[in-house]
Design a protein around this nucleic acid. Structure first.
Length: 602
RNA sequence: GGAACCGUGGUGUAGUGGCCUAACAUACGUCCCUGUCAAGGACGAGAUCGCGGGUUCGAAUCCCGUCGGUUCCGCCA
């Protein structure tokens, strides 16, 4: 069986052609003496017409229902004048049917595939194969294909090799929780699914591949979010003999090209802004700023220190900070809206939220409106407004606390307001690189330094000396690619000097045994001539989600898992029978045994 | 691990203490209809309101618990 024609290709110029269309019945309209069947396939929808002239076909068409699979034989003709449908690509023509074959009837679907209300997501997931018939899902699958193909073509042209790395690897205790796979042949031992091909791609650099990429599936056993799935796909890439700038430029060119060529979206700025981690935290309150709008955070501690408002001056006196931002046009917010903002800020961790509406700065009497206005001199308010870049009609919002709390709250508030005030142009992708993050963060519980990125990330050139004196101030030669408030991926230049690597491990408080056990294979490899190398690993799912304007990552994954990590269609995860467990040398704990007893497979 | 919101015919919603013997749209079934494309018209079937307990003369509606779903925090590069 083959398909000569698709349901999206026939045009007026095909009039007179005898064709057979195969596909699903998208909609059936029965007028008694004439029946229309819209036949749908991946490529489109074509209207077919049945009249009693062909009695056999007409009788069959009478029994056919939505979502049945049919083959319709007939002749293409221009639609009668006045009945063309400009909303359909094939709307100029129709196929007058002389025959129809039902290839497969369909049970009544649990929800309407074309048109109808949006079903609840659990229903969509349970019947994902029907959900995927919908145009929105097809569009996302197609876009995803084109994105991946663009990446493959782009990198192949630049002499990158796509190399597959194993899915069954070993567990790396730091970072995310691993998915484990018990070994049958090595009792008591486990494989882990890769959180990313990080170490393997570095080994490929030692192997002399020089330019590697992979569309790699990664696994992390952590709790899910709208933009997180337990298994996800990364563009993993690594290059030898490169500087950070080489990696960033390649990434920039690739992402600009695919955004502009595959979507109608505009890239806000190229080259992508390079913002230091510290800058990003200070100006946007997080390390993945949405740059589609401004509304930057500003420091007003200087004014706050000497003002008459005790909450502010005390905070400064106690080593805290006072910062804020100006919400454009929000001076007109009602009391109720401002109260909501305050409680939102409190949910984010603020003790309170001070608001000052900028009414008319020219008027010295009533320039500002605020419950705390009386505690401030006019010049102080002017100076705050100046620092925040506030203009008439804006609402200034100030938070006083310890610096990390203030920045976190204002960062979240900024995103909240960005959405509330619709500040972001949905037609824009604002890519940026966040660079020079700290190499380490102090682990309070364990009393040691943790690698912020991973232990092979190189310190910023010139800061190696600080490893000995002030590890917390060492910055990494690492970078995050962000877009529209999402972290799309991160990467770094890797350490290739043994003494630097040893110093890093020392700071992380690893014993020689631990180093050998966890990283022995990599360090051994590095003894045999490791080239300087670095790379990046952007997430494909998040990228496609962004480009497709989808609110969550599941919309661009054909068979995603729900928040509990379950596949509602397959029913995974599921209990396995006792024999399988025995082969794997696994025994369930009593609680697990009890839980699965009722759901044992046959 | 925690918080918030949601759960009413197949699907999506309304109803938030008595007017509910549960409404509307769509899907579904039967019939009518020769130009629709969200076809139209008539008729019909379909929900003990996620489940359990409680408050009340009376519960879809209030309370408690539980299950399921989503979002967020913790967690996660």
């Amino acid at each position: 069986m083959s398909k000569e024609w698709t349901c999206g290709q026939l045009r007026a110029s095909d009039a007179g052609r005898k064709v057979t269309l195969k596909g699903w019945v998208n909609s059936r309209r029965d007028h008694g003496g004439v029946i229309f069947l819209d036949v749908r396939d991946r490529w489109g929808v074509t209207q077919t017409v049945f009249s009693p002239d062909h009695e056999d076909a007409f009788r069959v068409a009478d029994t056919v229902r939505d979502e049945w699979v049919v083959a319709v034989r007939g002749t293409v003709r221009r639609r009668p004048a006045g009945t063309e449908n400009p909303r359909m690509a094939t709307g100029e023509i129709e196929v007058t049917a002389s025959g129809i074959e039902v290839l497969a009837p369909s049970a009544v679907p649990p929800f309407e595939v074309s048109g109808g209300p949006e079903p609840e997501e659990s229903v969509r997931l349970r019947y994902r194969y029907l959900d995927l018939r919908r145009r929105r899902m097809l569009h996302n699958i197609e876009l995803r294909h084109r994105v991946v193909k663009y990446i493959r073509d782009y990198l192949s042209e630049r002499e990158f090799l796509e190399v597959e790395t194993p899915i069954l690897v070993n567990s790396t205790p730091e970072g995310a929780r691993d998915y484990l796979v018990p070994s049958r042949t090595s009792p008591g031992e486990f494989y882990a699914l890769p959180q990313s091909p990080q170490q393997l791609k570095q080994l490929l650099m030692v192997a002399g591949i020089e330019k590697y990429f992979q569309i790699a599936r990664c696994f992390r056993d952590e709790d899910l979010r709208a933009d997180r799935q337990p298994e996800f796909t990364q563009l993993d890439l690594e290059m030898s003999f490169v500087s950070q700038e080489d990696v960033l430029e390649l990434t920039e060119d690739l992402f600009t090209g695919l955004t502009e060529e595959l979507t109608g979206k505009r890239v806000l700025a190229k080259p992508f802004p390079r913002i230091t981690y510290e800058d990003s935290m200070n100006r946007y309150g997080n390390d993945k700023p949405d740059l589609r709008f401004g509304m930057e955070i500003a420091d007003v501690s200087e004014v706050a220190a000497t003002c008459g408002f005790k909450v502010f001056s005390d905070t400064i006196a106690n080593g805290g900070t006072v910062r804020g931002l100006a919400a454009p046009g929000a001076a007109s917010f009602t009391r109720r809206q401002i109260d909501e903002l305050t409680s939102t800020a409190q949910e984010f961790g603020a003790k309170g939220l001070v608001w000052i509406a900028v009414e008319s700065p020219q008027d010295s009497e009533t320039g500002y409106r605020s419950p705390v206005a009386r505690f401030f001199e006019r010049e102080e308010l002017d100076s705050i407004a100046h620092a925040l870049g506030a203009r008439q009609g804006d609402l200034m919002l100030l938070v006083a606390d310890r610096k990390p709390v203030v920045l976190d709250v204002l960062g979240r508030l900024r995103n909240h307001l960005g959405a509330l005030l619709e500040l972001a142009d949905p037609g824009v992708v604002a890519y940026a690189f966040i660079v020079q993050p700290p190499l380490f963060e102090w682990n309070e519980e364990e009393g040691r330094w943790d690698a912020t990125h991973h232990p092979f990330t190189a310190p910023l050139p010139g800061e190696e000396e600080l490893l000995r004196t002030d590890p917390g101030s060492v910055r990494a030669e690492a970078y995050d690619l962000v877009a529209n408030g999402y972290e799309l991926g991160s990467g770094s230049i890797r350490i290739h000097r043994r003494e630097v690597q040893a110093e890093v491990f020392r700071l992380m408080n690893y014993s020689d045994e631990e180093i050998e056990q966890r990283f022995g294979h990599l360090l051994r490899a590095f003894q045999y001539g490791a080239p300087p190398h670095g790379g990046i690993a952007p997430g494909i799912d998040r990228l496609v989600m962004l480009l497709a304007d989808e609110p969550n990552i599941r919309e661009v994954i054909p068979f995603p898992k729900n928040q509990a990590g379950e596949d509602l269609m397959l029913g995974a995860p599921a209990p396995v029978d006792e024999r399988q467990l025995r082969e794997l040398h696994i025994q369930l704990l009593p609680a697990a045994k009890e839980r699965t007893a009722s759901a044992r497979p046959q």
